[in-house]
Simulated scan of single mutants.
Amino acid sequence: MKAAEDRRTHLVTGAGSGIGACVARALLDRGDDLLLVARDEARARELEQEHPGARTLVADLADVASIAPLDLTGPLDSVVHAAGVVALGTVGELSAGDWRSQLDVNLLAPAELTRVALPALRAARGTVVMVNSGAGLRANPGWSAYAASKFGLRALADALRQEEAEHGVRVTTVHPGRTATPMQEQVHAHEGKDYDPDAWIDPATVAAAVLHVLDLPRDATIPDLTISPGPRPA
C-alpha cells in the first residue's frame, strides 16, 4: 500500500463494466484513491461493493444538469472518462432520442464533468483521459450518431489540451479498437454476428494503456493513443 503522500486521486466514469471497471481496479490495486460516478444511490452502493475502498459521487451522465452540483474541490490528479453508450443504425433509422442519448453521455457529460473538475485539476496539474473509440477516427455506415459523438469528444479533447496547457493540465484521447466489453457484445448482436471475446482486445489491456498515460513523466504528453487488436493465429 502506498504511503498517504504518494497516493493520487482519480475520478473515473463507467466503472461498472468494461474498460472503466478495469481502470478502477488497477488504480485501487496499486493503492491510489478513487472517486467513481454513479447514476443513483443504489448504483453507488453497488460500485462501492464492486470496488472496495472507492468513494462514489452521484450524478446521472444521461442528465447533464445533475453534474454541476458535484463537489470536486478536493485533490484530483486525473479524470478518466470511460463511460459510453451506443445505439447503432443509419441516419434514416435513428430517432432524435437515439442521437440525444449518445451525445448526452458520450460528449456533453464529459465536457460538463471536466468543467466542474478543472479547478482541482489545475491545482494538481492533472490529466484528463478521454476513452474514445475507433469510431472517433472514422465513421462507418450504421454508426452515424455514435461516431458523431466520438468525433465531438476528440474535438473536445483537442481544444481542451490547448486551453489548459498554461495550467499544466494534460489531455489524452485513447482510441481503442474493438474491445471485449458488454458494449461489444451488444454491437455483435445488432450486427447479427457471433460474439467471441477472445477475438478482441482485452479491456485490461486498454486499462494498462490508460495507466501508462496517467504515469507519464511531466516532461511529455501523449495527445492521442490508438490501440488496435493484435494479430491472431490462423
Rank of each mutant, 00 (worst) to 15 (best):
A207M: 07
T221W: 10
V187L: 11
V169K: 04
H167D: 11
D196E: 14
V210C: 03
H188V: 00
I222P: 15
D219K: 12
Q162A: 07
H188A: 10
W200K: 00
K193R: 10
Q162H: 11
A165Y: 01
A209I: 10
R154Y: 04
H167W: 05
T221M: 10
G152L: 03
R161L: 04
H188R: 06
D202S: 00
D194H: 15
G177I: 08
W200E: 06
W200I: 06
P176A: 09
E166H: 15
T221P: 09
T173F: 00
T221C: 11
D158G: 03
E166C: 15
G168F: 01
W200F: 14
M183R: 14
D202T: 04
D198N: 14
I222R: 10
D224Y: 08
Q184V: 05
D194L: 11
A155G: 08
T221L: 09
K193I: 00
H190Q: 09
V213S: 12
D202L: 01
D198R: 08
Q186V: 11
T221G: 10
T172C: 09
G192N: 10
I201L: 13
T221H: 12
T179V: 05
H188L: 00
I222S: 11
V187E: 07
A159M: 09
A207I: 09
R154C: 07
A208M: 13
V171M: 04
S149Y: 02
S149P: 04
D194W: 13
D198M: 12
G168D: 02
T181P: 03
R170I: 12
D194M: 10
A204F: 03
A165W: 07
P182N: 12
L156F: 14
V174Q: 03
V169E: 02
A155F: 00
T205D: 15
H167Q: 05
P203G: 12
H175Y: 06
E164D: 11
E163W: 03
T172P: 09
P203Y: 01
A204G: 13
E185A: 15
A220I: 08
P182E: 06
P203L: 00
L211M: 06
K193M: 09
K150G: 03
Q162I: 11
P203E: 01
V174I: 11
A157F: 04
S149H: 08
D219Y: 14
G168N: 06
H212S: 08
D194R: 05
H190P: 10
G192V: 01
A189R: 12
R178Y: 07
H212F: 14
R218W: 13
T172V: 10
P223V: 11
T172H: 13
Q184Y: 07
E185Q: 14
R170A: 13
V169R: 10
P197V: 00
A199K: 13
G152E: 00
P203A: 08
I201W: 10
L160R: 01
G168P: 04
A199S: 14
A155Q: 09
A209V: 06
P176M: 02
A165D: 11
G152W: 02
A209N: 04
A209T: 07
D215W: 01
H190K: 08
T173Y: 01
A207C: 08
T205H: 14
D196S: 04
D202A: 13
A207T: 01
Q184H: 15
R178K: 15
A189N: 05
R161D: 09
V210T: 04
